[in-house]
Amino acid sequence: MDQKGTKLTTTDSSRPASTLPYTQPVLKATGLVKTYGKVVGLDGVDIELYQGEVLAVIGDNGAGKSTLIKCLTGAEVPDGGEIWLNGRQMSFKRPQDAKQFGVETVYQGLAVSPALDIASNLYLGRELRKPGILGSVFRVLDSKLMRKNAKAELDRLGISTLQDVTVAIENLSGGQRQAVAVARAAAFGSKVVVLDEPTAALGVRETNQVLDLIRRLRDEGIPVILVSHNMPNVFDVADRIHIQRLGKRAATITPKSHNMTEAVAIMTGAASA
């Protein structure tokens, strides 16, 4: 592993630049089932994510959006169904299993640790250690390198509102916290980036920054799954839209094939695709 590099990847950093014809999905799931006692969260969901696209997932409250995301990214283990990443079947038991394969997620409600600073949060769970015996035997962290890389990565992602990476998360505004969470996913996600309601509670300007970031990731060849309630945002940035209804996929549409009203109709069951 190259710890000196300024890019924050821990797995392979080769991001395919070419947009291949849509042949094989990068991430695919078939027949995902997840129940919580008697409550059925997912009732056999299929989903496909292709190279170089932004796939939005929309649905009413309780339609199973967050459960779907959690099952795809190892935060929950599905009761049934299969998950494939680049043609390989996966069984993610924990979030770090998915991360190991380059699938990074921003969960709803932000998985950041408020008392730790920005750099520590970016590297939480995959800290860099000092070279040599200090790192290998005494497990000493290389805080300086982590701060430097974190700074470089925030600059690269164009997140200008975060200048000092040693500030504790609890001293940041909601939008800035969101930016940290999104930056972490963007920095380490070498295969897929998944964002669950990343613009919730954000101002207009901050929302646009996140949307720009999503487009930039797609242009770099990283496909993005975006869960959102915000229809204008979804229609603004998504290439395809997965509509989740009552624990199932109701339809997959595109912003060109359907308009917002039609999408909402499918979402609420007033119309079928």
């Binding site: 997620t105 969960y107 998985a111 640790s113 408020p114 730790l116 497990r139």
Partner: peptide
Amino acid sequence: GRTAWGRHVYAVGDDKEAARLTGIR
């Protein structure tokens, strides 16, 4: 202060679920 373990202890105490989702065991 200087090892990942120490930082993970703080993270777990700070917000257990966030720590789990971050990939900390």
